[in-house]
Design a protein around this nucleic acid. Structure first.
Lengths: 208, 208
DNA sequence: GTCTATACCGCGATAGAC
DNA sequence: GTCTATCGCGGTATAGAC
């Protein structure tokens, strides 16, 4: 449970290799089903080397998830957007990019599966995810809602949550839970409907 | 992987006890970390009895999740609502009941953690969840949107998804991922804002 | 049908050579 | 520092008594 580092003076490239091997294995198999033997093989080092760089399996896992949460997947929901665009363009661009990235980055869905699946046994990792992914999405979108002159929202913060929540839940049901064939739905309909509610216009009005 | 039943002629009460013990263990520890020894102890039978009722660990797990998906948690998002109410009352009642049930039923969050966490390794269980929980929520809410005379929604199906998605995502972030203290938010704000978008009114207009 | 006892394997973690 | 070899435990699954 301790994310402290009792190591160093050890070759950093081995550390990186172990983290990379751990990422491959943990994301593919989950925490409990991953063995340190396979991590060592994937990292192309011996098991003893793994244990000289990380105190135990839990410590490696925590270090790895922190690295992913604070680096690789930190801004997946919050890259910079072209601000000189209509709200319709800005919001649909944002939603589409989020859905594309999450779908195309093959490890991202497994990453979310792991965070959610282990959120009871590793609550500190879940909280790190909330801070680095969810909170950043909320606040960036909320900033846009607050400062965009065309929009006068009664509760920009709640609206940002609804927007992100609808997109993320769509991603969870369609892709993560393999619901595409059971409850099919064009992403465009979700996005368009969301934008209509936020801009308080109907699709017809937009086309006039 | 085969959900067929190679058993029966076995005491049904032992089967029920094993399923109950399995539920306790799998929901608390996840699939891989659960041992058949502990399942047997929790069910108060011997390990051999477990294996005479279920072919192997995977088969027990699949049977258990199917039981939960089709029974216990099937209607958590879709109990009957008082139809003789204003849309505001109906929708806020629905959202509050969903959030209350999911929060108070202590096993429900772990159930969702398990479904999502194992959705890559057990895709058929994820699909059963989509069919029995998500789809039912969508279609009930969509029916209401379509038939409620006060509401004229451009896309009731997409609106139902947004409504459910915003509520479920709120539940995931605040409760499942322990985000309550990091990104605090009153549920009322989410619900009120959602209702305003759906009924196309501001909070002020409602109070006039 | 259900039990006790056990086979057999892979796990996390470490000792000791180099 | 990194390796090979190994320990001891706990895992899934089964054989055989009753």
């Amino acid at each position: 449970m301790n994310p402290e580092k009792p190591e160093r003076q050890l070759s950093p490239e081995k550390t990186a290799a172990i983290l990379a091997g751990g990422m491959q294995e943990f994301l593919a198999r989950g925490y409990a089903a991953t063995s340190m033997d396979r991590v060592a093989i994937a990292a192309k080092v011996s098991k003893a080397t793994v244990y000289s760089h990380f105190r135990d399996k839990e410590s490696l896992f925590v270090a790895l998830i922190h690295q992913l949460v604070e680096g690789k997947f930190r801004t997946i929901f919050a890259e910079e957007e072209a601000l000189q665009a209509t709200p319709q363009e800005f919001l649909s661009g944002l939603a589409n990019r989020v859905l594309d990235t999450a779908t195309n980055e093959p490890q991202f869905l497994n990453f979310m599966r792991l965070i959610i699946g282990e959120s009871e046994r590793f609550p500190q990792l879940a909280r790190a995810f909330v801070q680095n992914v969810e909170q950043i999405s909320f606040s960036r979108l909320c900033q846009y809602f607050t400062h965009c002159p065309q929009l006068k929202l009664a509760d920009p913060e709640a609206t940002a949550r609804i927007f992100v929540g609808a997109i993320v839940h769509f991603l969870i049901v369609q892709e993560m839970l393999h619901g595409k064939d059971i409850v099919p739905m064009e992403r465009t309909r979700i996005i368009t409907t969301l934008i209509e509610y936020v801009t308080n216009r109907t699709g017809d009005e937009q086309n006039r």
